[in-house]
Design a protein around this nucleic acid. Sequence first.
DNA 1: CGCAGCGCCTGAAGGC
DNA 2: TGCCTTCAGGCGCTGC
Length: 268
Amino acid sequence: MPELPEVETIRRQLAPRLAGRQIIGAWGFPSPKFSDAVEANGATIEDVTRRGKYLISPLDDGRELIVHLGMTGSLRVTDESPDDLYVRAWWKLDDGGCLVFRDVRRFGRIAVVDAGSYAALPTLDKLGPDPFDAGFNAGTLWQACRRSDRHLKTQLLSQRPVAGVGNIYADEAFWLARINPADRTLTRRGAALLVESVREALQAGLDHGGTTLRDYVNANGDSGDNQHHLHCYGRADEPCERCGTTLRRTQLDARTTTWCPSCQPRRR
DNA sequence: CGCAGCGCCTGAAGGC
DNA sequence: TGCCTTCAGGCGCTGC
């Protein structure tokens, strides 16, 4: 499940490979989620950038090709035309390569829009600051969480206070910050801790090439390594690395959530 | 406008 | 062995 570290890993691999390449053929799976792929035909890719979990490629005609990988999406550049049941889009390049988007569960999304016009992608349209930007700090996070009464974890996953955090790195960040994900309010100090912990969790993911639980592979087809470095996510019923208490699992707004009842006590 | 609830998808895993 | 059910989950949409 690609979150910011996985998407950024792919972006770093694709940007030098795709910049300057003209698209000379395109196909999209016949569904509104993918059929926009053909709209990029004929344009030249100028770069591959990222906002949160969205890959954004500026085109030379003032539009942008946007790809969200969803749960099981992957992007690769191959030498041959794809022959695979789960390919949802491809773009033939002017150097003989082919950019292929594969997505078993079809939770991904492709769009071609006028640059910066994201009305068709409401989450992107209202996306918060990237976690490593100065615009994400204790003050902004505290303010954002003060305006809502939802569980803190649900707020992080909304992509509004900060962009790019999904279920895995959210559980990691709350564990690192020793904050209970079911809390609804943050102290100033808690906000500062959580900012640092979000960055630490995501940086670990980046350093280890992303987390591969089942499907994730980078643009070279390689799995990540961060699944061997997780402290909390997916470790319910195992002892907490810090205190030995058995980690617990629950559902929080329909999201599987793992936490340490001792290190991460409920506030209030 | 905020948000709770639901639907989208399909392979893997578990139950019997 | 094989059928059936449940689970995973990011995001868009609907309706309160």
